[in-house]
Amino acid sequence: MWLGERVIHARALTKTYGDFTAVAGIDFDVQPGESFGILGPNGAGKSTTMRMLGATLQRSSGDLRILDHDPVSDGPLIRAHLGVVPQEDNLDTELTVAENIYTYGRYFGLKRGYLRGRVDDLLAFAQLEDKRDAKVDDLSGGMKRRLTIARGLVNEPTILLLDEPTTGLDPQARHVLWDRLFRLKETGVTLVITTHHMDEAEQLCDRLVVMDRARIVAEGSPADLIRRYSTREVVEVRFGSDRNAEVATQLEGIGERREVLADRILVYTDTGEADLEHIVGRGFMPVTSLVRRSSLEDVFLHLTGRSLADE
């Protein structure tokens, strides 16, 4: 089978563990050079999907082609062209920063001479040149992540798989990492990213699927999904956690629809400022109020009835 312009092709991809279905028949394709996201709460099946894409977990049923090969029969060949950044940094703490990249390259059978130059390039890319001889344990969380990414790039992969790349990092470290990933994307590497941070998905992904309870519930570009599943703007009003539900019942007719969360009411509308005035006009004075653009968070809330942040 010739895939044409697809580096990943999944049809009815399923993984079950006994009675438990971790991934329930999902379909998607990834184009070369694309930055593809899998967005969903913890337990949605993202990491299981990632491990199948990484050719380290066998599917239970369905079709999966990666770089035009079947991971069941051609696992090592496929993995030779993948870079993997797992959720937990599994760096070798007995080795230095540079040795981690070098040793990992040797696992692929890459030549020593090639690796010496490659290690330098990757240390520069990861902005870790001055940490070259440091032990892994002495690195900050953001540095470890960058080292894990650099290590994953040692074999010049066609596809880089990133599982929750910035979870647990502080905002500054996240931005540094995003910048590195942008640069990578510019070189033509296909990125597949799982995340439960909607801002990350918006920042990094050309196209994404939203997963919930083992299934794909929506697919499109971030802007596309927002257009389809949400309104242009959202009014967030807070009346105190004991009053939100009660006030919400009296906001009938304002905006297209409303969602009541534990701590706030969300009013979906294309005219935020005007609707906020309507709310105040009806005699409800919110403790705080905010008019903002819709985000993927709203899309997720609409599709699943749950907030990503609650998970």
Partner: peptide
């Protein structure tokens, strides 16, 4: 950089014996 959509030649990657 050219983008490969399939694996043509796994350059520099060892076969099953050397691992």
């Amino acid at each position: 950089m050219t983008i490969a959509t399939r694996i043509d030649a796994p350059v520099g990657i060892h076969g099953p014996r050397r691992g």
